[in-house]
Nucleic acid binder design. Structure first.
Lengths: 285, 285
DNA sequence: CGATTTGTTGTAATTTAATTACAAGACAAC
DNA sequence: GTTGTCTTGTAATTAAATTACAACAAATCG
């Protein structure tokens, strides 16, 4: 937990004067790290020892040490301590908050992801006879995106966002086929059924879903992404971005496993687009 | 440029003693930020003023200020200096690199994005009679995702990834309709045509695309996202994530503009899923 | 309701750390 | 070999942070 978050969470245990200090610091974190203890005390209208005591309460060695911790918190980019969008946020505020919360979500995803599982998933995918991506709702667009990546690898790839098609496809699957089921919650009944059906037909089922969810239990192999979702907006946001990055990782693992010669193939796919595009005038991206 | 990088890059301009200081700091950055100037001087076997001069040479106000900058550099965590995936990277390396490069891309996107344009786009979207999202290839899944968000707002939303449908839809558009064209490069001919057609028919065309691209020139309003794309893999990766976050921002702006009562509506949409899902056993997400 | 204790806050003294001024030494150029 | 410049360290100074202690406020208990 970074210092800024710590200040917020231990707010209740502060005394009156300490709260004044906390308020000033939260309001001007950037100014704080460039201020002396005297300047900060003056801003908060308290004495210098009070500031010092405040720092100690936050498990730092003293004011200079506290500034160090604060600087690190800020570097991790938390201009908005509360990253949740609020009713009266202006465009500047909500734009920054959404970028920040998405980045924070990716960071926790990175820390929690199981490299071993990724490696096994890449193994399975590179050996697949056929790969199917299934998702519903918001996860359907992730499935489409996955198809857009994996079709380049010259492997049969399908993608369905229709439960009937998914079901038929699952029933027709067999040994060597890989089915990737994508669901943030992992509690969508239809998708669980499909995972079960695919498994009964000897397909390998990879789940990109929440750890220990009903869907996860139906899968051969689970890539869990426990990302804190901002539920205020009632829309999947960060979770879906993390899923996409995971798809990128699997696709990258796939290409690396296949070696450099294979990469030439990808270049061809990309070059094939040239005719449909306006030429670049210069080398800027 | 962060301080650590600065130390490396200005290595040539250091004197003999300053180099000693630089070496010690680069070797033990974590220890440095918790040391006094005296301790560091002793470690580097130089005098205290030498350390101070070293700090000044790096455009910091003095030793404490230098430590602050150093702390921030360390917090920003660049475990992989080179974030590009390489031939012989193992799963651990490429996973970390892809997460990191995606986060870095989002960070530059955040810095470069034009808040003013976002605000105008939200304006236009909230007043739209009908909203259409068009994308091709990788951008098609972004368009689908946008549809998945915006349909919740009780506004007529369509999404096409088929140029014939897009064309027909564009021709049928009229004043008050908003067409959102999504393309990373902004050089896909078909999509440019469609933007032009939509504009001829009095629709407002919002482009989520590269600044000053052919597509951008056809749009009423451009949300440019100049994200450094990792082209090694010949696949769109970071750009597409940035586009999704932009969609999230527009959707959020939309809901905020509509006020709190409208948010109840979104909750209803979300609650409607309950029947199709397994119940949560606890409150973990 | 008053006395006592506990906790909070500020003043002043002290200690510690960082910076400056200056002088000695090293090195290069003439 | 001498002069000038650049580098480095010593000692003095200044600035900053911390500690010790006293005054005050609030809460607890008789």
């Amino acid at each position: 937990m970074n210092v800024l978050e710590k200040i917020v969470s231990s707010a209740t245990s502060f005394s009156k004067s300490e709260r004044k200090v906390a308020d000033i610091i939260l309001a001007n974190p950037q100014i704080t790290i460039h201020s002396s203890i005297a300047a900060l005390a003056k801003m908060a209208d308290v004495s210098e020892p009070t500031v010092n005591r405040f720092c100690r309460r936050l498990d730092t060695k003293g004011f200079p040490d506290f500034k160090l911790h604060l600087a690190q918190s800020l570097a991790n980019g938390t201009p908005y301590v509360n990253r949740h969008v609020e009713e009266d946020d202006g465009p500047e505020a909500y734009t920054a908050k959404i970028f920040e919360s998405t980045m924070a979500a990716l960071d926790t995803a990175r820390q929690r992801v199981d490299i071993n599982m990724i490696n096994r998933a890449v193994d399975v995918l590179t050996q697949a006879k056929k790969i199917s991506f299934f998702g519903l709702g918001a996860s359907a667009s992730v499935a489409h995106d996955a198809q857009n990546k994996f079709f380049r690898f010259n492997v049969p790839v399908v993608c369905f966002d229709d439960i009937v098609m998914q079901r038929m496809s699952a029933i027709n699957s067999s040994d060597g086929d890989v089915v990737v089921c994508i669901s943030h919650t992992g509690r969508t009944k239809n998708l669980c059924d499909i995972a079960a059906i695919a498994r009964e037909n000897d397909a390998t089922v990879i789940g990109i879903t929440a750890y220990d969810s009903p869907l996860a239990r139906e899968c051969t192999l689970v890539l869990s992404l426990d990302v804190p979702e901002d539920t205020d907006m009632y829309m999947p946001m960060a979770s879906r971005v993390a899923q996409l990055v995971l798809i990128d990782i699997l696709a990258t693992g796939f290409t690396l496993r296949r070696g450099s010669k294979f990469r030439e193939n990808l270049k061809k796919v990309k070059d094939s687009l040239r005719g449909s595009r306006f030429e670049k005038k210069d080398f800027t991206n």
